[in-house]
Design a binder for these strands. Structure first.
Lengths: 343, 343
DNA sequence: GCAACTAATCGAAACGTATTGAGTCATGGC
DNA sequence: GCCATGACTCAATACGTTTCGATTAGTTGC
């Protein structure tokens, strides 16, 4: 039952392969009569073109790949909404690749395979070794790439990107805490090493400095996206001599885990401790208490990032000027996890 | 700067394309000397084989596609862990496809493209029109398919699958509630139409019947995976004449949303209302209160489902006997959302 | 030193499609 | 009746690999 080819169809219909091909791809170029004949054969045989061969011949796949750190994170699910909508509008298919940190054994293998099968790549996880590979790889090739949500280090800022102003976002929410009367504010970092993480820390420090508050270095600590990681961070923050009265988490997932761990420690939020996150994922709305956070326009980011990619794909590849990152607006969303500190 | 081909490398190294090809794919077959020569050229030119051409020639991609209903759902993130690990072990790459309900506009387009570029497919979302298409399509083609987490209707049960015994799982947790003294138990369904949903409802009904308890039909209602959907369901359940004292949610996401909505309504869990979920996603551990639920061995499911797929891929395609679904063990995990009903 | 083998390499063919330049046919204008 | 036109169609080719059968070089055994 071997797969049948366009040649089989051509023979059955008594025409050449060229005609069959045109009948499929630009039907208006073939006469009514032969088109019916061919369509009938296709119908009967259940033929469908071999995508591998077609893509090979065409040199493009009409597929894009979006690289996320990990499936199962709400935040990226929200970004996908925008990407998906926009991609559908332009007839592009989406495939998602989980980068998943260091743990990806045969990275080199994956890299090449994945890379080439797509017309373009959206990177939502620049830190992973996979992404690093993609980025360096693409210096030689000409594979359209756009970065979403994150910033790259300056030397790699050749790629278009769209994200919020992470520094300002964190500055704003830190400022909000200060406004509420907090002076000792802790900070739980996200993944070590990314610019995003650096910017968010910078925003925190900037706001503190603006307010003339000094930071005890033990207040800033690293978390992880697991409950255990956050638990450790919370334990640490609760143990330092001048314990903070508020904690900023670099993202909502960690903030929600923080809420849990503070409860475990017998503290009430916001009475005994204020907590804020960043991102405004759906869960932050239904956490206990509902989380005060800063919102990223996630769907909009998705849309814009795809539009950028499309621009890259359609551009003649000669001159690719260094792009300014596209900055979208963040907004503070105030819910129930912040109160004035007990005096 | 056109991409260079294997022929260019061959010329530069002064050998034939065949030798270059072997040098890349089975280096041990080529002599030390020429291998070094070729490697050097490859190094210098930065050549890497055109995947499109390679896959086309080989007729396989060493890629599998896993279809999930939607990115951003923790449950599937957990399943992926197992799949990923097992796939890496066998040198397979993974691409993820979001099926995403009815909203996928140009479905037909996606179908064919996606389908053919993979050596096999893992379906974790049988309900979507995409999946339906894949399934029917594959009757003609020979594309290995394995189903995870869900069951198919009997007539489609030609495909191997691995999942828990959903009926038993729900029966068990319902039984647990009854043991705690509940007699009026509500049930919030998952997505309408899947066998999984049917089985879970059946389990609920079976346990009630076993205990000699009758069900008021208003106790069973449909939810959605959004907070709004659950809010509506909760509102409904709170308004029925003989209000339930416990609520079973068809999955943890809905259960966690239920916790929030009950709080909103001024009810305490578990004092005023008991709540349970199914799946045991990570968030259920840190919800407030921590959720009583039944655990699926998610990583194990992922591993097994990939192993099954591999078996299908390597099988000679003639005789594909109807497979018994592979059933994995569920376990009750008791946390803090269940208490005896107030009398 | 010759036959017999093995290891390494080569040239050529194949995979299934899209496309191009050339050709066929019918039509209509003169 | 002939030529030009345009609409269709065809045969052949290219895409970049991998692989097969054949050839050559190198080694061993006698």
């Amino acid at each position: 039952m071997s797969e049948l080819s366009i040649l089989d169809i051509a023979k059955l219909a008594g025409v050449s392969t060229a005609t069959v091909s045109r009948c499929i791809n630009s039907p208006h170029q073939v006469s009514e009569k032969t088109r019916q004949k061919i369509d009938k054969v296709i119908q009967e045989t259940g033929y469908s073109p071999n995508t591998l061969a077609r893509d090979f011949r065409r040199g493009k796949t009409r597929m894009i790949i979006v690289v996320v750190p990990e499936i199962g994170l709400e935040f990226f699910g929200q970004i996908m909404i925008g990407i998906r909508e926009e991609a559908a509008k332009h007839g592009y298919g989406i495939l998602i690749h989980e980068a998943f940190g260091e743990k990806d054994a045969n990275k080199e293998f994956n890299d090449l395979i994945v890379t080439r099968n797509a017309d373009g790549i959206i990177l939502l996880a620049c830190l992973s070794p996979f992404s690093a590979e993609v980025l360096s790889e693409s210096n030689r090739k000409t594979l359209p790439i756009v970065i979403g949500c994150e910033t790259l280090s300056d030397d790699l800022a050749v790629y278009p990107s769209v994200h919020i102003d992470n520094l300002a976002a964190t500055r704003d929410i830190t400022h909000y805490l200060i406004e509420q009367g907090h002076q000792r504010i802790g900070f739980i970092q996200g993944e070590e090493g990314s610019i995003l993480t650096r910017d968010r820390e910078l925003g925190y420090r900037a706001a503190m400095e603006d307010a003339g508050l000094s930071i005890i270095e033990e207040w800033v600590t690293f978390g992880e996206l697991t409950n255990d990681g956050v638990a450790k961070a919370i334990r640490h923050l609760l143990s330092v001599p001048k314990r903070p009265t508020a904690i900023i988490c670099a993202n909502d997932e960690m903030a929600i885990a923080a809420l849990h761990n503070l409860r475990q420690a017998g503290l009430s939020v916001p009475e005994d401790m204020s907590v804020v996150g960043i991102d405004n994922i759906p869960s932050s709305e239904i956490s206990y208490p509902p989380l005060t956070t800063v919102s990223q326009p996630k769907k909009e980011i998705g849309e814009r990032v795809f539009k950028q990619l499309l621009r890259e794909i359609n551009k003649d590849s000669d001159n690719r000027p260094k792009k300014q990152p596209e900055i979208v607006k963040h907004t503070l969303v105030i819910r129930d996890t912040v109160a004035a500190p007990k005096s």
